[in-house]
Simulated assay, not measured.
Amino acid sequence: MKTGKLLFLVVIALAITSFKTITSDSKNAAPSREFYQIKTYIFKTEQQVETTEKYLKEAFLPGLKKLGIKNIGVFKPRPNATDTIKKVMLVIPFSSMTQFLGLEDKLAKDKTYLAAGAAYLKASYKQAPYLRIESILLKAFSDHPILSTPVLNSPRANRVYELRSYESATEAIYKNKVDMFNAGGEVKLFDRLAFNAVFYGEVISGAKMPNLMYMTTFADQESRDSHWKAFVDSPEWKGLIAMEKYKNNISHIDITFLYPTDYSDY
């Protein structure tokens, strides 16, 4: 009888220990890496811009939020004399690929969304609400797995949201550049210098692969310029670019300056 009781107590003790271990491991587990869609609407006319923005503001964004998709960025290019094409760009975070792939079907069952977006959704071929839509799909970096919303107090029209794309010559060299951000400490350096990064992502579907993309945010152009000066002058950056293993891992850079619309979440 005593042997049976002792065995029972041993089993209970082991169960408690296992539970504590599982709970501890759960707390220490890294958060799941999000996925991002960068969705760009390209327009030919002001009427197209007006129709699409009404749809985004009154139907699409509310529809996403009903599905639990939040922190959606909506941006326009900062005025540029050499690029006069009208665009609206969205950055949409998804918790999983399943959520991304199921989005259209779920929106199609939302009567409120369908009614609010009717002018856009039922537009005729003669009055298309945009010229084209471009889409890029990304997976968040391991060192920045969740989208961050910046805290900026300056007027939205003055803000500079800088979207960068770094292309590499081959897939292997591209992975080396991603490693430079994560293990190499480039993400940590941006954090230390308060670049207010929204996301860093590996492009898993896009027109310029292999490439990575990331977005940093600033109160204004002067703030942006001073932050980048601090970056290139930092001992961490000078140490990184001096490392032989990280040389020549970027073949092309695209930089796009944006500002948030009045209905953007950040």
Rank of each mutant, 00 (worst) to 15 (best):
I69R: 05
G185V: 07
Y174W: 11
S168T: 03
Y125H: 15
K27G: 07
L56S: 03
N182I: 06
D191G: 03
R164Q: 09
L67I: 00
S264D: 00
K177E: 09
S142K: 14
M1L: 12
I38G: 02
V11G: 12
V160N: 10
A15P: 12
R192G: 09
H252A: 14
L131M: 15
F181A: 09
S226M: 07
Y120K: 07
G4E: 06
V74R: 09
I16T: 08
A194F: 01
D225P: 00
M180S: 12
N153I: 03
I253V: 03
T170P: 08
R132Q: 15
L114D: 04
S24L: 11
S26Q: 13
L131T: 08
K66F: 00
L163I: 04
K86F: 02
I241G: 12
I250H: 12
Y55V: 02
Q127H: 13
D225S: 03
D105N: 14
A157P: 07
A30W: 13
I92G: 10
Q99W: 04
I42H: 15
N176K: 10
S251C: 08
P129H: 01
I250R: 13
K39G: 06
R159F: 04
T23W: 13
I38D: 08
L193Q: 02
G206W: 00
I173M: 09
E104C: 03
G73E: 06
Q127I: 15
F141P: 02
G239M: 05
V198G: 11
T45A: 03
N211M: 09
A118P: 07
S124E: 08
R33D: 03
R192I: 05
N249P: 01
I250L: 10
P77V: 03
F19R: 14
E222R: 04
L258W: 02
H144P: 11
V198A: 10
L103A: 00
I85A: 15
A119P: 06
K87C: 11
S18P: 13
F181L: 11
Q37S: 13
M1R: 15
L121D: 09
Y200R: 03
T51Q: 10
P150Y: 00
A29G: 08
S26H: 10
V160T: 04
K87N: 12
G206I: 00
V198R: 08
P235W: 14
A15M: 06
Y266L: 04
F190H: 06
S148V: 08
I204V: 04
K139W: 02
R78Y: 07
A15F: 01
E53A: 05
Y174R: 06
I253G: 05
N80D: 15
I16G: 15
